[in-house]
């Protein structure tokens, strides 16, 4: 064979290689296309809102009262109401959620009680928001006697978003290397001393990210606040947690479907404000995480 003087290259492509390569390319493009599709709804929603709603945005729109049967004027009571609702919901859900997550991550033995809590968290996350709304009416509005109020609505929101806080917190606690805990325990630190001095300080970034994501989710919720504390139209601003309030998400629903003769741009303007708040908070959470990640080294 070698006598011809030409050695045939044994590494040349065969038919089989060619067909495998073709399939490879096909699937890569297919998967990339599917992933790319994700961008589409975001782009369409944002463009539509900006195109149709940006003409509404003005100082009077953001800081004025709705007038003329909500067909004119601003959205300030709703904007402020949303801030109230989210703020109070956070004050309730963050301490409860973080404490629960610390228990589950740092203390809980693997027994039926822990498993029951985990099951409850999973199921709580799966309850439809309208069911939370009805639960809120029964529990907070009627049973605890808070009436339809910010407090009742925020508590409903808090119950609904608790799983988010717990799961996010637990994950960031678990991300703290176990070796740090062992180091502390072996120096005679109790669980709590370990948590306070080492585990929590090193998981703050993750916990905050979870909290901010919860805020952005809570901001947009409509059903849970509809029956529990958010009102169709109130011209005065809330003064305490026992007042009712307007809220952006409900206001959007109202001006889009419940009120006649609303100019077309108005609902788009409300939606634009709402989504801007959410995106702003999401970006804040990403920025914060990147900032804190950069600081820690192990």
């Amino acid at each position: 064979m070698a006598s011809t003087g030409i050695i045939e290259n044994q590494f040349l492509e065969t038919e089989l290689n060619v067909s495998a390569k073709r399939t490879e390319t096909l699937f890569k493009i297919l998967f990339m296309f599917m992933a790319g599709l994700l961008i589409l709804p975001v782009l369409i929603i944002l463009t539509t809102l900006v195109v149709k709603g940006s003409s509404m945005i003005s100082f009077e729109f953001l800081f004025g009262n709705p007038t003329n049967g909500m067909t004119e004027g601003g959205i300030f009571p709703a904007l402020l109401g949303t801030v109230w609702l989210v703020g109070v919901a956070l004050v309730i859900s963050v301490p409860v959620g973080v404490a629960a997550a610390v228990y589950l991550s740092e203390y809980a033995p693997d027994n039926w009680f822990t498993r029951a809590i985990n099951l409850a968290i999973i199921n709580l996350a799966g309850v439809p928001s309208i069911v939370h709304a009805l639960f809120g009416v029964g529990a907070f509005v009627i049973f605890f006697g808070f009436g339809t109020s910010i407090l009742a609505a925020s508590m409903t929101l808090a119950v609904m978003t608790l799983p988010v806080v717990i799961v996010a917190t637990r994950e960031s606690l678990q991300a703290v290397p176990h070796a740090f805990r062992e180091a502390c325990w072996n120096m005679g630190a109790t669980r709590w001393q370990t948590i306070r001095r080492v585990v929590l300080p090193n998981s703050v970034s993750g916990i905050l990210t979870g909290v901010i994501l919860e805020v952005s989710r809570t901001t947009g919720e409509t059903a849970p606040i509809m029956f529990t504390g958010a009102a169709f139209f109130i011209p005065v601003l809330p003064e305490s947690v026992f007042d009712q309030t307007m809220a952006l998400s409900l206001h959007l629903f109202v001006v889009s479907t419940q009120v006649p003769h609303v100019p077309e741009a108005l609902p788009y303007g409300v939606a634009l404000v709402l989504i801007s708040m959410v995106l702003l908070m999401n970006s804040a959470s990403i920025a914060l995480r990147m900032h804190l990640r950069g600081k820690k080294k192990w």
């Binding site: 740090f180 062992e182 180091a183 502390c184 325990w185 120096m187 005679g188 109790t190 080492v198 192990w298």
Partner: peptide, 19 residues
Amino acid sequence: LVQVRKQVGMVFQRPNPLP
């Protein structure tokens, strides 16, 4: 337990200084 851990210190396979 804390008194035991004070008197009996432990060093691990992988160095585990706190961050």
